[in-house]
Design a protein around this nucleic acid. Structure first.
Length: 177
DNA sequence: CATCCAGTATATA
DNA sequence: TATATACTGGATG
């Protein structure tokens, strides 16, 4: 795995890539903002061996750029034209289905936890959907912030409700208090 | 209106 | 095995 930092006007995000693509994206926090910006820091030597090495690094650089671009677009309330490949292997089948459903919510729209649950064929699993949203490894690009409670209230957010609120505001959505 | 509860998938203890 | 979650519609007082 490799981590890189992405500086935006809203803080420094941390992206983690596996050999398959973007695997995790973290909100700015005191912890990762303090780490000196050193792009493409190797953390773990699991690149493909010998021959693949050079290609691997090239991929990471490309993905890093694509991620930074997509992230900045999203933070501005726009829909990124292209995303880096996403590695969602970390989740369970249920979680991957939820995350997949989340990606179909376009900017400026919202769904309720129940609607997402129905979309994946488990209309009663709203609560479980909430858990899956909280486990979303790639917030913003996988728009977990567009899922509101049935009464159009905010619900919760792993990165802090302020983030959810401001992300929605930039998309022209004003959830209830 | 205030509570309670079942149903659901996962994580944690 | 029990409890706690980014939930919610229905039952009950």
């Amino acid at each position: 795995m490799i981590t890189t930092e992405i500086k935006t006007s809203h803080g420094t995000f941390t992206a983690t890539f596996s050999e398959r693509g973007l695997a995790q994206l973290e909100f700015p926090s005191r912890g990762n903002a303090r780490r000196k910006g050193n792009p493409l820091t190797r953390r773990d030597a699991t690149l493909s061996p010998s021959d693949g090495e050079r290609d691997g690094v090239r991929d990471f650089r490309r993905w890093h750029i694509a991620t930074a671009r997509a992230l900045k677009q999203s933070l501005a309330g726009k829909t990124p034209k292209t995303l880096p490949p996403l590695d969602l292997n970390s989740g369970t089948e249920f979680q991957r289905r939820v995350w997949s459903a989340l990606r179909k919510i376009s900017s400026g729209k919202t769904r309720s936890y129940t609607e997402v649950a129905s979309a994946i064929g488990k209309p009663k699993a709203a609560r479980a959907v909430g858990s899956a949203c909280g486990a979303n490894p790639i917030p913003v690009l996988i728009p977990c912030h567009r899922v509101l409670a049935a009464n159009k209230k905010l619900g919760g957010f792993s990165g802090g409700l302020n983030w959810k609120k401001s992300l929605l505001a930039r998309e022209g959505i004003a959830p209830k208090d």
